[in-house]
Design a protein around this nucleic acid. Structure first.
Lengths: 346, 346
DNA sequence: CTGAAAGCGCTAACAC
DNA sequence: GTGTTAGCGCTTTCAG
């Protein structure tokens, strides 16, 4: 038994240390360490004895000590502002599994309000977390890159952000995806296409909106005012009602995510408008539910798994010192379902 | 400068240790430690000098060393089988924020396949993770409680599980919620109510189905066969088609989650059936999107935030040794929207 | 109010 | 093939 303070724990059974095992097995701590790390230079008989003692004492290596020695935590930190959007959640899922496959755990470092002053403080604190590197999932804009440099002590990969930042960035190819959506509508013959965008603070929303504007302009079409939502289905509902109430009803709507598209369609149903008969609707994300929306939603498929996996891979490479700063854009695919068709009278 | 191996890092700038700061400030390491931990017994002038040195050297306490000394990691481990269901995701979100508020980080410990053999192995490994306790979010059944006892070395709270297990459990009151749903339909006058359940491996699904059966029986009604889905909207779509194709069309469907309800409604729309005109539909979860479904879905609201917060609170209490094993059931609320009405001809 | 010593559990480096 | 020594960065204990 070692002499650790036993903590006022429910289970007072103190944990066996490497020394306890060494004594129990009649060997040195070093030999126990070798067995624990499956090194080869231990006589089988000795190994077995040590293994038996480990078993008997319920020995588990102490990760704090191991971390202290190695200077590594085998954990990657994920900074998020929330887990409530499909993209953040799915990306996190992919990161957690990719990290686990590489022998890393994932540490969540939630930050309350991204737009608020304290981002810098939060980032400052990051360096003392028990992580080897950080993936920043920015669903919203951070004040300035200066604040990010505060994390310079730790390898960093950014997901969903301004590609101008001097860091490794992995993201969905927002522009390519938005083009796919708008060009699909144009190809069907639509000319009056309204865009329902995500919040102004979101880089993805901004870039999708820019691509929408660009494609419309390239086609020689006027660009009607953009309706701004907040990614929620409720904001889509409001947007749909606003669109239907406007003087010139468009023949198609491109929503910046599926949930807002759902809301838009619901608003149209309320008003007795048919989708796609009266108005076509395209979403973005290709959420699992999209095929069960009514009507099944045409949407741009984002490969969140790929984004998460790539971010993890790049971060671990950076941690291992095999890094170069990279910008990686993951392409999307258009999934055509029943919410789009040629405009009436064509 | 201390002599840490500098790691083949991108930034070779070695990190300042407490000793570096001590030397720089001309004090002992002990005094630096006191300042770092905001202890009171340091002369203001000394404190300021130390603070300045910390600043100058960019000192950050090393959490590994701190952990080693304290025997605490200030992190809670969350074991999940996936993050793809609404409940898991929302619960995790609540846990992460509650933990952060209490000064803990959240470490994700994803387990690939719950039904598979290696659950025990995975749990065994948990003890050597750098966490002070574990929240197990079981979206599926684990073979036997024996496997859980493997984690006995660490404080444990289970979410969404069999209340018979000898552990602290926090969960939505599944039975109360399901009763609310079925009783609502009965009160509207429905007698033919079909249940679309979640997968057989899920405790929540099982308990909702049991409550459904119980309420039907108590009302003296026959219990039609239960259709089993997998929580996905696609499985709801299949269930809806199966129901519509069956010899006796029910007047109402109670789906075990909102996504399956969405699929069921979509299948009905496909077939030209009106909801709630021809069939009423009730869901479970009250997802953010439910109000934007067509028609807006009547659903049972789960307080995932409350579940996550409570689980975190109880776990931290257990870690602090102020524990007793508890079962905590969080009540639900019925949210009536437009997908339910009295059956035709009544 | 401040410092010196000791040691947390583990492993790299070097004996033997 | 195995043991000994030393030290990772920090904090608890005890002296001053």
């Amino acid at each position: 038994m070692n002499s650790t303070t036993p903590n006022a724990h429910s289970l007072p059974r103190a944990r066996a240390s490497i020394n306890d095992v060494a004594i129990h097995a009649g060997v040195s701590a070093q030999t126990v360490s070798r067995v624990a790390n499956s090194q080869t230079n231990v006589r089988p008989a000795t190994r077995d004895r040590v293994l038996a003692s480990m078993q008997a004492l319920g020995y588990r290596p102490n990760s704090a000590a191991r971390n202290l020695k190695s200077g590594r935590f085998r954990s990657i930190g994920v900074v998020t502002f929330n887990l409530r959007t499909l993209g953040n959640e799915r990306t996190l899922d992919a990161i957690a599994f990719a990290a686990a496959a590489a022998g890393y755990t994932t540490t969540l470092l939630p930050v309350a309000d991204p737009t608020q002053v304290d981002v810098a403080g939060a980032f400052g604190r990051l360096e003392e977390q028990a992580v080897d590197g950080i993936i920043l999932i920015m669903s919203a804009e951070v004040g300035s890159p200066d604040e990010l440099t505060l994390t310079a002590g730790l390898p960093l990969v950014i997901v969903d952000s301004d590609a101008a930042l001097p860091h490794t960035i992995v993201d969905t190819d927002q522009e390519q995806g938005a083009r796919l959506a708008v060009e699909h509508l144009l190809a069907l013959g639509h000319r009056d296409i309204v865009h329902v965008s995500g919040p102004a603070t979101s880089f993805s929303a901004k870039r999708r909106a820019e691509a929408y504007r660009a494609v419309m302009s390239e086609a020689g079409l006027p660009v009607p005012p953009i309706i701004v939502g907040d990614w929620s289905a409720a904001s889509g509902l409001a947007a749909g009602r606003a669109i239907a109430a406007s003087e010139r009803m468009p023949t198609a709507v491109f929503a910046s995510n599926d949930q807002m598209a759902l809301g838009v369609m619901s608003a149209f149903h309320e008003l007795g408008l048919s989708v796609p008969g009266d108005v076509s609707v395209v979403g973005f994300d290709d959420a699992d539910d999209a095929e069960a929306y009514w009507p099944p939603l045409t949407s741009v498929h984002q490969n969140f798994d790929e984004v998460g996996k790539s971010a993890t891979r790049l971060l671990i490479a950076t941690i291992d010192g095999e890094a170069e700063t990279t910008k990686l854009l993951i392409p999307t695919q258009l999934v055509v379902r029943a919410s789009t068709s040629a405009p009436r009278g064509r």
